[in-house]
Simulated scan of single mutants.
Amino acid sequence: MKAIPLAAALLGLTAAAMPATVSAQRGWQPIAQRQGNLDARIDQGIRSGRLTRPEARRLTTEMRQLSRLESRYRAGGLNQWERRDLDRRYDALSARVRFDKHDRQDRRYR
C-alpha cells in the first residue's frame, strides 16, 4: 500500500522539476540552430519584401562571415570565450535582421 503514495510523490517531484529544466534549456540555442533560424528569417524577409536587396545582401554576407569565424574557432576547439563571442555576434546579427525587417524600407511603403 505504501508503494502507491511513494510512486505518486516521485511522479510529482519529477513533474515539478521538468519545467525548470526545459526553461533553462530554452535560454540557450545551439549555434547551428541559431544559424538556421537567422537564415530562415532572412529568407522570409526577402520573400515578403520586408528586406530590400541591399539589406538582404548585407545580412547574408554577415551571416557567411560569422559562419567562417565559427569554423576558425572550431578548428582549435571551441572554448568558453569563443562561444560567448559567437553568441554576442549572433545576437547582434539577429537584432539587425529584426531592425531591417521593420524599418519600413520595403516596397509597400515606397
Rank of each mutant, 00 (worst) to 15 (best):
M1V: 10
M1A: 12
K2H: 11
A3L: 10
A3G: 12
I4H: 07
P5Q: 07
L6M: 10
A7R: 02
A8R: 11
A8F: 14
A9Q: 12
A9D: 08
A9Y: 14
L10Y: 06
L10W: 11
L10E: 12
T14C: 14
T14N: 11
T14Q: 01
T14R: 07
A16V: 15
A17Y: 08
M18D: 06
M18F: 11
P19R: 00
A20F: 15
A20R: 10
T21F: 13
V22C: 08
S23P: 07
S23A: 14
A24N: 09
Q25L: 14
Q25R: 08
Q25F: 06
R26H: 01
R26I: 13
G27F: 05
W28H: 14
P30G: 11
P30I: 01
I31K: 00
A32N: 07
Q33S: 14
Q33M: 15
R34G: 02
R34P: 05
R34C: 09
R34K: 13
R34A: 05
G36V: 13
N37K: 13
N37D: 15
L38F: 02
A40S: 15
A40V: 15
R41W: 03
I42T: 03
D43A: 09
Q44S: 11
Q44G: 05
G45K: 01
G45S: 06
G45R: 00
I46Q: 03
I46D: 02
R47N: 13
G49L: 13
G49Q: 08
R50M: 13
R50L: 11
L51A: 07
L51C: 09
L51G: 01
T52K: 01
T52P: 00
R53H: 10
R53T: 07
R53W: 13
E55N: 09
E55F: 13
E55R: 01
A56S: 07
A56D: 02
R57I: 12
R58H: 09
R58C: 00
T60W: 04
T61D: 09
T61C: 12
R64A: 04
Q65A: 09
Q65D: 08
L66T: 06
L66N: 04
R68W: 10
L69D: 06
L69C: 00
E70D: 12
E70H: 05
S71Y: 15
S71F: 10
R72V: 10
R72P: 02
Y73E: 06
R74E: 04
A75H: 08
G77C: 04
N79E: 10
N79C: 08
N79W: 08
Q80D: 15
Q80V: 12
Q80G: 09
Q80A: 15
E82C: 02
R83M: 12
R84W: 02
D85M: 04
D85H: 09
D85F: 06
L86H: 02
D87W: 03
D87Q: 07
R89Y: 04
Y90R: 06
Y90I: 07
Y90V: 06
Y90A: 03
D91L: 05
L93M: 00
S94R: 05
A95M: 07
A95V: 11
V97D: 03
V97F: 05
F99G: 07
D100G: 04
K101N: 11
H102D: 10
H102V: 14
D103E: 00
D103H: 01
R104S: 03
Q105D: 03
D106N: 14
R108P: 01
R108G: 05
Y109T: 02
R110A: 08
R110P: 08
